[in-house]
Nucleic acid binder design. Structure first.
Lengths: 230, 230
DNA sequence: ACAAAAGTGTTAGACCTACACCCATGG
DNA sequence: CCATGGGTGTAGGTCTAACACTTTTGT
């Protein structure tokens, strides 16, 4: 019952970043067979004495040198017994958000290269990683409606136009600027700064910060964040 | 990288059933140590050549002789390295719904006894199964608002009072009968039969069926089921 | 003064919520 | 005919969705 099982346990992460007004995901070029040279999700095998979370964090550090702003479990892929040609491997996949501007990617032990890819222009992926990525994207699109997770993709201080553009990039449909601002402000979770973002042409936009503590307090007392746009 | 890992993979299921106007969950009395005699979730180790889903289905069959109406992955527990005192074991846990009336529980190989427990009156559970159950309950309560999963707990033909009582049992708060009926009917997903449930006193209630096919068709074209009650 | 992007309010319709009486059956 | 539980409509309030002009800045 114990020694006749030979299943290996891996963790993989779909890391989303927002760059150049587009949603990106982080991929690693595989160094070894059986998918040498292919792009794949960052991830790897879990150590015997390491929690799953610690495993993902370690792989992200080793393979891409990044620390994420948000991390949650996505799904465990283990129904296809042959998803890894080498052995029976199940993958506990995670969903992560990061501020892409904050890092210069660097590769390390397990990978040749780490790179951001625009979500609508992904290369062919190793294993079942395309499916995992798709599922993560579905989760992101669903979740952004009922949790304020978008802020994890932006700088600590951001403008309304940035936030709005982020939502448009994720949901791939236009948003009414006035209704969006009204709704977001109604939660009273943003802190207005006195700073402005002066870039490009046009009127400078005011910078805001997300009030994480206040959100956590509200959460605890049964508050629900929600934004609907048909 | 392959042979230095010794993590075991188990699956566990939180099976919900609705009986005697109350929400129940299915528990198994452990036959062997380290939790001999304790109540625990049905589950066990996955076989090398078996999908995770097949593993859960097999365990449910073997341990309790049941087949479920609804089954989805819940969460993978593997952050506590010592959640099983014998070895490093991760548990991929599932969330299942079943029509409790339809089965007479029978125990088999791995268990002494299988039994329904009222959700507000659970015994102390083995391993971290209390936490898993709690998470499943949270999921059920959330999910019943935005997916028509309640029908999986009832007979194929059911009455409005039954459906309403089910929601009350799950959410543990009263519901306005008129608004509930109006909302459910507005989806146009129920098929009215000409039959009535004649039981007890009072006016007999009309029997309805859930139109599964129609629901699946609507789903495919972007429809969302949703019931809110503050 | 012009171009570019930020900021701002109102209104109609949809949806949610609260609420009380009549109806069908069995004893 | 009484007790029990099933079935039904309406009105007020709140939220959503649609829509266009003014403000600030750089050139």
């Amino acid at each position: 019952m114990f020694d006749d099982q030979h299943i290996k346990v891996a963790v993989d992460a779909v890391v989303f970043g927002y760059k150049d007004l587009k949603l990106h995901t982080l991929l690693i070029k595989q160094k070894y067979s059986p998918f040498q040279g292919w792009w794949s999700l960052p991830g790897g095998f879990v150590k015997d004495d390491e929690s799953l979370l610690a495993g993902v964090a370690r792989e992200l550090r080793e393979e891409a040198g990044i620390t994420v702003n948000y991390l949650e479990q996505l799904y465990t892929f283990g129904d296809d017994v042959k998803r890894d040609p080498r052995a029976r491997v199940i993958s506990i996949s995670y969903f992560a958000l990061v501020n892409a501007d904050q890092f210069t990617l660097k590769a390390d032990t397990d990978a040749i290269e780490a790179q951001w890819f625009e979500i609508n222009d992904l290369p062919e992926l190793a294993y079942d990683h395309a499916r995992i990525t798709e599922m993560a994207l579905t989760r992101l699109r669903a979740k952004i409606h009922y949790q304020p997770i978008g802020f994890n993709l932006l700088n600590k201080e951001f403008t309304f136009p940035e936030l709005e553009q982020l939502y448009t990039a994720i949901l791939q449909k236009p948003i009414d600027r006035r209704n969006f601002r009204k709704k977001i402000l109604s939660f009273d979770l943003l802190v207005e700064t006195n700073k402005f973002q002066k870039e490009g042409s046009g009127r400078p936009a005011k910078l805001y910060r997300f009030h994480t503590q206040k959100y956590q307090a509200l959460m605890a007392s049964g508050f629900y964040f929600e934004i609907k746009f048909a």
